[in-house]
Computed example of a mutant assay.
Amino acid sequence: MISLTSSENSTVNSTAATKRLARAIMVSAGEFSLILVCCNSVERQQQVLNLLTEFSPADIHEILLTPATDTLYTAITTAIGSTQPEALMVRGLESVVAINQLIISTNIMRDEFRKQFKFPLVLWVNDEILSKLVWLAPDFKDWAASTIRFDVVESVSSEPALCAVLGH
């Protein structure tokens, strides 16, 4: 029987997902692409970003949205000015007060993202924001390949549950 502890399994999954994210950024260098990364823990996001620097040579810029942010496009253009970073990570969507309006305006402005941004755009979302993207910005969300997930694994021992699933 193969047995992975919860933390070992989490580390393996996290490393694989981080490599996938680094590869997605590298493949999209110099052109617009939308990369959705789902993680429900802000602390875990920071761990992944730290690990990403080991796997990606790209100069990745990062912006953190504030609760008062009203449009994603404006927040990005204001933050980057006339520069075109190699990649841009956007965090903090979960903190935006008027998130529904922001997502709807993003869908309306979607063509401007592709016209103006010549770099991969990585949006960090949680499950709630991902669901809102599906419902409120389906056209924009469709530009993303499959969502890269960094699921937080509970710290309780999962071996008995794993054994029960495997029938042992």
Rank of each mutant, 00 (worst) to 15 (best):
I25P: 03
T106E: 04
I108A: 01
L166H: 14
E86A: 01
N40I: 01
V125F: 00
I104C: 06
A68K: 08
W135H: 15
N9P: 09
L136E: 04
A145T: 06
E159T: 11
S105E: 11
E8R: 07
R149F: 14
S82D: 09
E112Q: 15
E31D: 15
S3K: 10
I60M: 01
R91H: 11
T78M: 15
L52I: 02
D127P: 06
V125H: 01
L121I: 04
E43A: 04
S105Q: 10
K19R: 15
A98P: 01
S155G: 15
T71V: 08
S28K: 06
I76Q: 07
H168Y: 15
M1N: 14
L133N: 02
W143P: 12
L166D: 14
F119D: 00
L133I: 10
T77W: 10
V125K: 00
W135C: 13
L123K: 08
A75C: 01
N126H: 04
L36D: 01
D59C: 12
L21S: 02
T106W: 13
E128I: 10
I25D: 04
L52V: 08
D142G: 03
V156G: 15
T83G: 11
I35G: 02
A144I: 00
G167F: 03
T71Y: 05
R44A: 07
S56C: 06
D127R: 08
L162F: 11
T5S: 10
Q46L: 02
S105I: 05
A29Y: 13
H61Y: 08
T78F: 10
D151I: 04
T106C: 13
M1A: 09
A75V: 05
T106S: 06
S157R: 00
T11I: 08
L49S: 15
L130P: 06
L36S: 02
A22G: 03
H61A: 14
T147H: 05
I99Y: 13
R44G: 05
D151C: 09
T53C: 12
Q46V: 10
D139R: 12
V153F: 07
D70L: 05
S28L: 01
E128A: 08
C163F: 13
G30Q: 00
D151G: 03
F117S: 08
E128N: 11
K132A: 05
T71R: 10
E54Q: 08
T53K: 09
K132F: 05
I60E: 05
F119Y: 01
D70I: 04
D139M: 14
K118T: 07
T18K: 00
Q45E: 07
T147I: 05
K132I: 01
F117N: 09
F55I: 04
G30I: 02
A68S: 14
L21K: 00
L162W: 09
L102K: 00
R91P: 00
G30W: 01
R149G: 13
R23Q: 15
S95F: 13
S157E: 05
A79Q: 09
K115P: 03
R20T: 10
D70K: 05
S14R: 13
L121D: 05
A161S: 09
E112F: 12
S158H: 09
